[in-house]
Amino acid sequence: MLSCDTYLSPGSLDDALAAVAASDGRFRFVAGATDLLPWAREGRAGDVHVPLLVDISGIPDLRTIEPRDGRIWIGAATPFQRFLDHPELIRLMPGMPDCAVWFADNQIRESATIGGNLVNASPSGDGIPPLLTANATIELAALRDGAIRRRRVSLVDFIKGPGQTEAEHDEILLGVECDTLEGYGGAFEKVGHRRSLVIAVVCLSAVVRLDPSGTRFEDVRVAIGGVGPVARRMTDVEQRLIGQPITAELLRACLVGCEQFVMSRTRQEYRKLVAPGFVARGLANAIERAGGSPDACGIAKEIANG
């Protein structure tokens, strides 16, 4: 089980950083705890003692959801369920509700935070592909030379490998700033051993914006997770589609080579079959949500159905 000598719930960033600065370095930040608690159980890490646990979920910056400089700030302590009931998030982050409905179950989504999903940096983290498509920027804060140092890192650079991030041990992930994608259509595809509470074998986020006639791609963003050490944007696919009219030939062509993204150690063959299928299905669903013309929707659906 997870035990600690001291459990602190600081109400400000200053207090949180001061607490860890005064410690001997043996501390952990915690928010939703839905990764930490099951990890510290028999059969995995067993009994884990952390002298100081600092619950950062009460820090105002981490709890804020607001527009910032034409983008949207999502505090790190935002639980996944908010992507399903927060009107601004739903309006500005198409694709995130689709991801959230696949994430764990309702009970876990109410506790598990977006920041926790990022610092956990699982190759299969469900929240990572949609944030990649939103060009997310991470903001970190730490105490350096007696002052708070804030720095920003793109999500692409933040996650360095399985469980490895750019964050230093005493840095707090404050939140993510994302592109606002109002008017885009979003989709999320995922497969695992069952519907709820599974680690993705493959997961994919697609967001598209179409021209007013709903027949041409104006913007396309696709990211895939679960198929390698880190989730990645499928820029080759995107570049082939942006600016082009939606045709069967174009959609078929963009699927060629998708299997190159699969770099997992296991179930390679299966994942190589799933990856292009998810690109096709993600695009079809996103096109429909983006207001695609009946023809465009029909073509995309036909390709998705093989």
């Binding site: 043996r26 501390f27 952990r28 990890w39 884990v48 469980g163 991030t165 041990h169």
Partner: peptide, 21 residues
């Protein structure tokens, strides 16, 4: 068992200052 039990997915939570109870 501790050093071997953490899978790739756990790597994030296993980092940092931890010790046995």
């Amino acid at each position: 068992n501790a050093p071997n039990t953490a899978s790739a997915q756990d790597a994030g939570v296993s980092g940092g200052a931890v010790a046995l109870a």
